[in-house]
Design a protein around this nucleic acid. Structure first.
Lengths: 159, 159
DNA sequence: ATGAACCTTACCATCATGGGAAGGTCAAGC
DNA sequence: GCTTGACCTTCCCATGATGGTAAGGTTCAT
C-alpha cells in the first residue's frame, strides 16, 4: 500500500491540505494513519474519497449533505432513491437561490436602465434605495419588483 | 424631533436591532445619541438610512458596496455615473453567481434524470461523484459538464 | 550540515447574521 | 411603593467554507 502525504493527497484530489485537515476535524474524513513523526498518510481510497467530496462541493452540496452522500456511497445496499431524493432537494435549493438572484438582477437592471449615468446627481437607483417603505428580502418593493413589460425583455443587457 | 428606541427603529426599518448595532460597530451607521440611561435614540433620518441599507441588502449589495452607496447618497454633488457603475458591477457579480448555480443545476438535473431512484443501489449520481478525475469548480468534469442536447431542453423539469 | 520545502497544531479572519447570558431600565398594574 | 414583563445595554460565541499566519518539527537534496 503506497500512501501520500497531505500535500500530495491535496494535489491528487484537488482539495487543499487545509481543507483536508478541516474535513478530518469535522468528522467528514476518517482520521488517517500517521507516520512516526506525525505526518498524515493517505491511501488511494482516501484520495478517492477526497475527490468524491470535491465533486460534491463543486455541485454546491453542503457539508451536511455530503456527509449523507458519502454515507450512501459507502453503503452498498443503499436504495438509489435516497441519493436521487438528496439531489432533487438540492436542485430545489439551487432553484430557490437562482430565483432570488434573478429577482435582484431584474430590479437592478431596471434601475440601471433608468439611470442616466452622467455628471449630474439625479439618480433613480438611489431614489429607489431611499424609498420610504419597509421591505422584506424578495417581498414587494425594492427587491421584489419585476414588472412585466411589453416588447423585448431587456433583462440581459446592462451596458 | 421625535425619536425611537432601537426596537421601534427596527420595526420601522425592517432591520433587526441586532444588525442596527452591528452597522454602528462597523461604522456604516453613525453613533446615534443616547438617553441618560444609555438607550440609543433614532431620528426619522436615521430610520430612513436604515431603510436605505435594508433596500440595498435586499438587492444583494455587500456591506462595502453599501458603504459606497451611502456615501454617494449623502453627497448631493455625486455624479450619477458612479452610482450606475456600482450597480453595473454588482449585476456582473450576480450574473457570475447565477451562471455558477445554473451550471450546477444543469449537471445535477442530468444526473437526476439518469438515476432510476428505486430500491437498487446502482446510481449514476454516485458514479459521477466518484469519478476518478480532479476537477475545479466550474471547470471541466463534474460541475462543468453542460452537454448540448438536441430536442427539448429538460433543464427545468426535475421530478 | 545546511537550507528549502514540506509537515504539525493553534489561532484569527472573512461575511452577515443570530443566539444567549448577565445586568440595567421603563411602564403598567396591583 | 413594589412587582412583573418587556424592553435595553454590552460581551461573547456560533454559523459555513475557506484562507492566512505563526511557531515549531521533519525530510531530503545538495
Amino acid at each position: 500500500m503506497e500512501s501520500l502525504n497531505i500535500g500530495d493527497a491535496a494535489k491528487a484530489s484537488g482539495v487543499t491540505a487545509k481543507m483536508i485537515r478541516h474535513y478530518e476535524d469535522i468528522g467528514l474524513m476518517p482520521k488517517v494513519r500517521r507516520t512516526m513523526s506525525g505526518y498524515r498518510m493517505y491511501s488511494a481510497q482516501d484520495v478517492h474519497m477526497l475527490r468524491f467530496i470535491k465533486h460534491s462541493r463543486n455541485l454546491g452540496f453542503s457539508m451536511k449533505q455530503i456527509e449523507a452522500l458519502v454515507g450512501l456511497w459507502r453503503d452498498t445496499r443503499r436504495p438509489s432513491s435516497k441519493v436521487k431524493a438528496l439531489a432533487i432537494e438540492h436542485i430545489a435549493e439551487l432553484d430557490q437561490k437562482i430565483r432570488e438572484l434573478q429577482t435582484m438582477r431584474a430590479t437592478l437592471n431596471r434601475l440601471v436602465h433608468a439611470c442616466h449615468g452622467d455628471d449630474r446627481p439625479d439618480c433613480p437607483i438611489l431614489d429607489e434605495l431611499a424609498v420610504d417603505a419597509v421591505t422584506t428580502p424578495n417581498g414587494d418593493g425594492v427587491a421584489g419588483t419585476v414588472k412585466k413589460r411589453k416588447g423585448k425583455s431587456c433583462e440581459h443587457d446592462c451596458h
